[in-house]
Design a protein around this nucleic acid. Structure first.
Lengths: 252, 252
DNA sequence: CGCACGATTGAACTTAGTCAACTGGCGTGG
DNA sequence: CCACGCCAGTTGACTAAGTTCAATCGTGCG
């Protein structure tokens, strides 16, 4: 499924020149760490929109960091119902679960064309042995992902449709802005309303109507896939979201 | 808040004699690892049912493994709505998020009286430096917790009330059985219907009615807090759950 | 006994899902 | 160029699911 690009064909991004690390969102990392990450990196891969990064029940020998593009993680029920569990964008590390657990039972799909840094699962233990700081970073990332899931679970389980939709758009905007993907209060979202519905745990029709209602509040403008948020605090209030404190995250 | 028992007052359980490790659910661990865990362990603490293990916004210097009893992890909205994000029982490691992230934003509460092994957050890095195998175990546990959250999110977002309730009881039973807490097909559950409702993302009334409907299918018997599952595969089918493959987990 | 608390039930109401039709943009083949 | 079909988005009407309100039941306990 996953095709690893030939490193000789086109040289992949050097970790010490990684464009992501320049963002304030990410920690600097020591020279030794960056050099280790470079060795840990097996190559780079580009996938088209809609391609499977992980299949829902296959095992994978790779871990990835998203260098560019959007993806989403999902789980499905046998009859086709699907829940998008989280979105992932550049800088996000994915695949820990798939690598650590035989039966991963969740899929990851490219939402746009994506470029991924590819790491070898087999060398993960080596990373833990030789770079305890990086190992702690991996764990940090894992536990932050867990926090996101907590947030999403709270949203899906206890927020009303309007709050939940506001929350999703608010959190996507905040994350995208940190990743340098927004211009002022504008953001180009890559997902269809069906994707949003699958993330919200609502039907497509109801998602559509809720978006309309949300537009009606004036908190957002949203036509096609262009989101604009004239009053972020108000959207946050509608979402009943707590303030967001930016923290520099590790980048692997 | 948290009171650490005096190790001199009453000797705490020795890790090399930990009663949990005898369960097939847990990996054996090498002598060196167990001895390190013993040093990592600061003490033991017993809390009454209803006590806060972590507050919803305080920072804590400790990590815990549940030695005995049940707890639950939850997140709340300002107006009092609450989502139980997961239940935890003996052998479960809790607090990684709270220790790694300043603003943890979720609480953990004792559901029954609980006994906890207490670890010092400050020594976590030492663990990563000196015991890469244990560090990987910590990460493994974290990513498995993440998988549970994925499952719960799928359940809350996409399963019907009946499926979702069946799923919750099924997964609680399977986990409790592995932890040696069930007798045959019987299990004493420690939580009220309000707890179940908060975990299911449903109202108390609807939870009650759904439980009645579920009893009506004959898949479960459930009076008071005694759950009995005469036909586990049928409950699993009602829950639209995939089979469960038992895997020995690390114990820290 | 009276009270507290969790469980249970019925009824009215609100929210969300389903079905079905329609719109508008965009690309392709005639 | 234009007709056509496709697909995502939009809308209304109807149905199903879930919440809220309110009352009742049962048990354990001071």
């Amino acid at each position: 499924m996953v095709f690893i690009s030939d490193r000789n064909a086109r040289s992949s991004t050097r970790c010490n020149k990684c464009p992501l690390r320049r963002l304030p969102l990410f920690q600097n990392g020591t020279a030794a760490e960056i050099s280790f990450i470079q060795q840990f990196k097996v190559g780079e891969i580009t996938l088209d929109s809609g391609a499977a990064i992980y299949h829902e029940d296959a095992e994978s020998p790779h871990l990835f960091t998203i260098l560019d593009g959007w993806a989403f993680r999902f789980k499905g029920l046998p009859d086709g119902r699907r829940q998008i569990v989280n979105f992932a964008l550049r800088g996000d590390f994915i695949g820990l679960q798939n690598s650590l657990h035989r039966n991963m039972q969740h899929g990851v799909e490219a939402l746009t064309a994506v470029t991924l840094c590819v790491f070898s699962r087999d060398r993960l233990f080596e990373l833990f042995e030789r770079q305890p700081g990086l190992a702690l970073d991996v764990t940090w990332l894992s536990s932050r992902e867990e926090q996101w899931l907590d947030d999403n679970l709270l949203a899906v389980g206890r927020r009303t449709a309007l709050e939940r939709t506001a929350y999703l758009l608010w959190s996507l905007f905040v994350r995208a802005r940190e990743a340098g993907l927004s211009k002022d209060s504008d953001l180009e979202l890559p997902m269809s309303q069906q994707h949003l519905a699958d993330a919200l745990g609502m039907s497509l029709v109801h998602t559509n109507k809720t978006l309309k209602r949300l537009r009606g509040t004036g908190a957002i403008e949203f036509n096609g896939r262009s989101l604009s948020i004239p009053d972020l605090p108000r959207l946050q209030a509608l979402a009943k979201a707590e303030g967001h404190r930016p923290i520099a995250k590790p980048l692997i």
